[in-house]
Design a protein around this nucleic acid. Sequence first.
DNA 1: TAGATTGTTAATCGATTAACAATC
DNA 2: TAGATTGTTAATCGATTAACAATC
Lengths: 264, 264
Amino acid sequence: MKSQAHSIRPIRQKPQKITPPVTAKVPAAELQFPIVRLKPNSSPPASLACLKRLPSYLQMLRVLQAEGHAFVSGTVLAGVHNLEPVVVRKDLSVTGVVGKPRVGFRVLELMAAIERYLGWDSQTKAVLIGVGNLGRALLGYQGFDDFGLRIVGAFDCSSTLIGQWVHGRKVQPIDQLDRFVRRGEIVLGVLTVPNSEAQQTADHMVRAGIRGIWNFTPVKLQLPENVVMQKEDLAEGLAVLLHRLLHASNVGREQARDGDTQRG
Amino acid sequence: MKSQAHSIRPIRQKPQKITPPVTAKVPAAELQFPIVRLKPNSSPPASLACLKRLPSYLQMLRVLQAEGHAFVSGTVLAGVHNLEPVVVRKDLSVTGVVGKPRVGFRVLELMAAIERYLGWDSQTKAVLIGVGNLGRALLGYQGFDDFGLRIVGAFDCSSTLIGQWVHGRKVQPIDQLDRFVRRGEIVLGVLTVPNSEAQQTADHMVRAGIRGIWNFTPVKLQLPENVVMQKEDLAEGLAVLLHRLLHASNVGREQARDGDTQRG
DNA sequence: TAGATTGTTAATCGATTAACAATC
DNA sequence: TAGATTGTTAATCGATTAACAATC
């Protein structure tokens, strides 16, 4: 089942070196509709780096689509964040979309494929726990719709917050989390509580049935094996930025390998 | 100037293979006070990955320090985010701090060294432009003090916002940015405006004298060569998290190379 | 056709991991 | 002393870059 997606291409044959007669003629029907052939949503051989780049391609594609472009080349997409075109093509290949030489990729098709690959084609429901400054901001952030995320519930333990309406959600007491999560079949939770509350809140989320935690605290959470956690840490980015800023004179373009950092 | 920090170690000699008599005796004085010897704050051969890990070591060290620990081993620090001890030792070496076999590293010394290396030993002043949900949250975030950052001014172009006090800062009109930045000798700017305003606001910041932009918009900014930009993109983390969540059954521990992602 | 673009394979590069002598 | 830990060198691994045939 896992290898199914790969079975389209033949097994790699290393030592062979037949150059001339390689282009096996494919039945015409195969060639007519290669565009709709997408890999199933499972078993993706994508690197983490690729996964992180995909959203920015998608964002660019949406802009292009709004501007009425039907096709886009990997070269153009590469321009978004100073990437090499070959990196873009490699990344896009995980979606299963096939481009046209000389023309590029069909914008609409690529958008759909990336969204599908990332799981952004259907909205994932999430709860947010901890309605402080950050929690409040995330609740007010409109952009999550584009990321396939919908925060459907907000929780806190502060009696002064409970019952308040924050960006369209009524803050609920934390002890109602279980019922809410189970009823709504919610698997994702956004953790924005103070550090001291992080672990016990995470425990509570797991008990309630949460399977993925977006962790905005710097706390290393102890979680069962079947729960996924993604840490979001502003300190990382700031460290890189400050470092670059302070050592700006030294370096030319150096190892700006990271897609998030840029000079000029 | 750039190679100065490296000049301590001899140039790598590849083909040579002298194994036995390598340990050149160092004068006693050199060995007495290796602990206070820090590399100058310039020209660091640190990888981006290392740079991103340093803040979490620092955070851990602060906790340990508060608990009264004088020493910590690389093994313990590695526990923070499931790293290998050798990675920690390698990372810490960029600070110039030397540990003691059997004992580990002096907590206070290491804290100071990392802070110094990251430039967090002295507060860096910054302005924030765009007092929307996110900007407001960042203004209210207390933790920046620990990151060596101090947001000293908030700007917006909305007449309804200008003059309001948000978390202790009075929102100023954007056209006063130049004067404020130049007077305060501010080099860092936090960009939290709507996408459509991002580029022109960035231009404005650059004209005002800003040299580093912490970009919270998904817009690829066109900037002069001498301006550093760090993009902060929630979509990246969410893409990784959702992907892990949706393909959770497939994979065991796979390439969880990234320090921010974790299973269990 | 000519030439831009795709997708694939091989080479390069860098970071992680393994191995190990030195240290207290 | 014995053994845990450090710091360094070599090996492994993976991602990026380069090269190139196939395509329209």
